[in-house]
């Protein structure tokens, strides 16, 4: 990937990861090389088993690579995790039902030892960031699925890490809510300038959101193509009907086919 910033935020070189299962070892990642620059929005797309989630989890130090190197902010992922360098959004909102929305957003702040006053201030700020003002006192089960996922994103943003890792965050939502949240996410990215790693299995979603689309293939999990998007940073929803958009989507589909993703 060509970057304006000479030092990438996330850098993987020759990364291998093999899971030992009962039957036989499974190569989840093989020789993955990738640099992600500051402020990039990078999507990982591919069929299940291609290692896109594993790669994201390796960045987050939730998995240990078996070969190669990976750095996050110039540190090992483990050190970056301890330094709270990133916010991670999972596929399910995973909010605690016994805490209010505000309480949920405040949770990582409590763990990280922020003062009470600062917690309150940050909760207010992030609630506004995800358009949930006035919902702080509600419990998660009183909110719709889309709102819950927004609260979950707020929780990842609350401690203001520069990196946001998202693992199919909208995968469980219906198409209409998903469109809306995609739009919101782009706005949020524009406002905060964060570096975002985003796992998805939806081609339109990847193309619509990203500055870089990483196409991956299974058995073994590897990168088959990295597509730099020529689309402008400002993207209205109907950009998806333009020839440029369809052209990129076509390239992604070709990349998936070349990697035998459809077999």
């Amino acid at each position: 990937m060509t970057m304006t910033d000479p030092s990438p935020v996330i850098s993987a070189k020759g990364l291998d990861l093999t899971f030992q299962t009962k039957d036989s070892p499974v190569q989840a990642l093989r020789d993955v090389n990738l640099d992600i620059g500051a402020g990039d929005f990078v999507s990982f797309i591919g069929p299940s088993g291609c290692g896109k989630t594993t790669f994201l989890r390796t960045i987050a130090a939730l998995e240990q690579p078996t070969g190669g190197t990976i750095t996050v902010n110039g540190m090992s992922p483990e050190a970056a995790r301890k330094a709270r360098a990133y916010g991670y959004v999972f596929q399910a909102a995973g909010l605690y039902p016994w805490r209010t929305i505000a309480g949920n957003i405040s949770l990582p702040l409590e763990i990280m030892g922020f003062s009470k006053a600062e917690r309150a201030e940050r909760v207010e700020k992030t609630l506004a960031l995800v358009d949930l003002e006035g919902f702080g006192g509600k419990y998660p089960w009183q909110l719709s699925g889309g709102m819950q996922q927004r609260a979950s994103i707020a929780r990842a943003l609350a401690f203001d890490a520069d990196i946001l890792l998202m693992d199919e965050p909208f995968g469980a939502l219906d198409e209409i809510v998903r469109d809306h949240l995609n739009e919101e996410l782009l706005k949020l990215w524009a406002r905060t300038g964060k570096t975002i790693g985003f796992v998805t299995h939806s081609i339109p979603e990847a193309v619509y959101l990203s500055t870089h689309i990483v196409v991956m293939s299974p058995r073994p999990g590897r990168i088959t193509d990295v597509i730099k998007s020529p689309l402008p940073r400002e993207r209205p929803l109907d950009i998806r009907d333009t020839p440029e958009f369809l052209e990129i989507a076509h390239r992604v589909r070709e990349g998936l086919r070349a990697g035998h993703a459809y077999d």
Binding site: A61, K82, G94
Partner: peptide, 17 residues
């Protein structure tokens, strides 16, 4: 769930937290 425990890990929470 494993996801909830992973989430705690991403916040670098200790055992007692």
């Amino acid at each position: 769930s494993a996801m909830q425990r992973d989430q705690m890990k991403t916040w670098a929470a200790g055992y007692w937290q």
